[in-house]
């Protein structure tokens, strides 16, 4: 993996970021710099090593299937940028038939 390089525009699209041309240009060098730092890991022999996701084993406990407090609608909606009829409003999602 010599000269690692991120196609910033392509990855930004995957990450739902609409970067400006200036940002794409200015991000390239620092991101490639970090990638170069990461190349160091290739030196480490990890054959037979299990990956660590969490620092210790985490159980996935099940709780009793009982009704649980939920956030009241007005509290939830207080932060919504746009709302209508006690619901959050967004642009149309479904295409015209």
């Amino acid at each position: 993996m010599s000269h690692p390089h991120i196609d910033v525009r392509r990855i930004a699209t995957l990450a739902r970021l609409e970067l400006s041309e200036e940002e794409v240009a200015s991000f390239s060098a620092p991101l490639d710099g970090v990638l170069a730092l990461m190349e160091k890991l290739a030196q480490v022999d990890t054959a037979g090593i299990e990956p660590t996701s969490y620092p210790m084993p985490i159980d996935a406990p099940m709780r009793e299937d009982i009704a649980w407090q939920s956030m009241p609608t007005d509290l939830f909606l207080q932060n919504a940028p746009e709302q209508a009829q006690q619901q959050i409003r967004v642009p149309k999602v479904v295409a015209d038939a």
Binding site: I6, A15, R16, L17, E18
Partner: peptide
């Protein structure tokens, strides 16, 4: 997201999405 996030956050999101 473009308007709301600053440059370091965007860089790390791109890095994370890439890896």
């Amino acid at each position: 997201r473009e308007e709301g996030f600053g440059p370091e956050v965007k860089r790390r999101i791109i890095l994370g999405t890439y890896v």
